[in-house]
């Protein structure tokens, strides 16, 4: 293998500019975290609502929820990114379309976050639905026996248990959000994957670049995992949903 190693590359200056490659990486890491966390907030709130609606006794609401999930689950994330970025503005009213294309601030970031958030919301909706349906039927009846309305039954009886049950799949979903944020490279969000390509071309130190970027993704996945493990531990109900 004929490769010129240079681990000091991170502290060298980039070709055109006075910042170091390390600054690039830190900025990239920042964007990755920003895109991931913002989309996670969108996904969790929207996904919970849609997942809950899919278990209600109204057939048309259930159908709407199912359609939502099928739409977002059956098209690749990368294609969805490109659709939101290039195609959706064409369908907006004239003025809004011009504004989005020309003047919208942080266009790439907003588009990527919205896309990843909606994409993930469909997956969370599926998990929330499964969580609610895994509860014994009696829980629902208990709510009714207490004289709760349907929303109250969900709020005080079903959802608190359902969310605890789905913490493990939510954990891997949370880790996936960081991994999936890498697809935002396609619409030029300056996140880690984008930076890794940029730095590889600029410095010609591919291996060092990729090692650093891969390590940063590892850190994201690890922290996401620990945070969820902490939540799982704190939210445990004695005698009910026990860990393993």
């Amino acid at each position: 293998m004929n490769y010129h190693w240079n681990w000091g590359i991170f502290f060298e200056q980039v070709q055109n500019g006075d910042e170091t490659y390390l600054t690039w990486l830190i900025h990239g890491f920042g964007w990755t975290v920003a895109v991931s966390l913002t989309s996670w907030v969108i996904a969790l709130s929207l996904g919970s609502v849609i997942g809950t609606l899919r278990t209600t006794p109204r057939p048309w609401v259930v159908m709407l929820g199912n359609a939502w999930v099928e739409c977002f689950r059956n098209v690749p994330l990368l294609v969805q990114m490109l659709l939101w970025f290039f195609v959706v503005p064409e369908f907006l009213p004239q003025d809004l379309s011009m504004w989005v294309k020309q003047d919208m601030p942080a266009k790439e970031f907003i588009t990527a976050t919205l896309c990843l958030g909606l994409f993930t919301s469909a997956r969370i909706a599926e998990q929330v639905r499964a969580g609610i349906q895994s509860l014994p039927r009696g829980q629902h009846y208990a709510g009714m026996a207490m004289g709760f309305t349907l929303p109250q039954t969900y709020r005080y009886v079903l959802l608190p248990m359902a969310f605890r049950i789905i913490i493990p799949p939510l954990t891997s979903e949370f880790m996936s959000v960081f991994k999936n944020s890498s697809v935002a490279f396609a619409i030029s969000v300056l996140e880690l994957t984008f930076v890794s390509r940029q730095m590889q071309e600029d410095s010609e130190q591919g291996i060092e670049t990729y090692v650093a970027v891969t390590a940063l993704y590892f850190i994201c996945a690890f922290i996401a995992n620990r945070v969820m493990a902490f939540i799982e531990k704190r939210s445990r109900v004695p005698g009910y949903v026990t860990a393993k």
Binding site: M1, N2, Y3, M175, F178, K179, N180, S182, V183, F185, T193, S196, R197, Q200, G206, I207, Y210, V213, T214, Y217, F218, A221, F222
Partner: peptide, 21 residues
């Protein structure tokens, strides 16, 4: 499972030519 697929694609694309020449 903890690396984004995009990074794995980049890694292989970089390493295969280096390793095989």
């Amino acid at each position: 499972r903890s690396i984004p697929l995009v990074m794995v694609i980049l890694w292989f694309f970089l390493l295969i030519p280096l390793l095989t020449g």
